[in-house]
Computed example of a mutant assay.
Amino acid sequence: MDHFQTIASFNFAHEIIVLKSILQNEGIPFLFQNENLISIDPLASIAYGGIHLKVHKNDFERVQNILDELNNNLKIV
């Protein structure tokens, strides 16, 4: 996990559903830090700074392109 970096943060668990599916289909290793905690207690999102998407530094640009595409088309990211 030393080579994983945070690329985006989300306030609620429902915001990551589409992105999680895309990353899995693309075969990109990722981690949503605090996902379970915030799924159980959504108000904890404020205290923990949200759900952090962490990806390997080698995949950073590829994931940024996916995030940009989602933001342009779905307006959820």
Rank of each mutant, 00 (worst) to 15 (best):
L67G: 11
Q24R: 14
E35W: 03
H3E: 15
Q64D: 10
E35G: 02
A8F: 03
I66F: 08
I22E: 12
F30V: 03
L23M: 12
E26A: 11
A8D: 09
F4D: 02
L19E: 06
F10L: 06
V55D: 11
F4Q: 04
K20E: 15
V55H: 02
L74T: 08
I76P: 04
H56E: 13
I17Q: 13
S45P: 06
V55W: 08
I7D: 05
H14G: 03
F60L: 12
I16L: 09
K54N: 09
H56W: 11
N36M: 05
F12N: 13
Q33I: 00
H52E: 11
I76A: 07
G27S: 09
Q33W: 05
L23E: 04
F10N: 00
A8C: 03
F12K: 11
Q64R: 09
G50Q: 06
G27Q: 09
N71S: 12
E26P: 03
E69H: 12
N65V: 02
D41C: 00
L37D: 05
V77H: 08
K54F: 00
P42Q: 14
Y48R: 07
Q64F: 00
L43G: 04
R62T: 06
L23T: 02
T6H: 00
I7M: 11
V77Y: 12
H3K: 15
I66C: 03
V63M: 06
P29L: 01
Q33N: 07
S45E: 06
D68N: 12
A13D: 12
L53N: 02
N73K: 13
M1P: 01
N58Q: 15
P42S: 02
V18Y: 11
S21P: 02
H3A: 11
N25V: 02
N58S: 11
E61Y: 05
K57T: 09
F60R: 12
I22M: 15
N34Y: 10
D41S: 06
N34M: 04
L37A: 13
E61L: 08
I51D: 01
F60G: 03
L43W: 06
S39A: 13
I66E: 08
P42D: 08
N65C: 00
L70N: 15
L67P: 01
K20L: 04
L70I: 10
S9K: 15
N72R: 15
L43T: 11
F4M: 13
N71V: 04
E35K: 08
I46N: 10
D59V: 01
I66L: 12
L43F: 10
K20V: 00
A13L: 03
N71A: 07
L19G: 02
S39L: 04
N71H: 13
N58D: 14
Q5N: 05
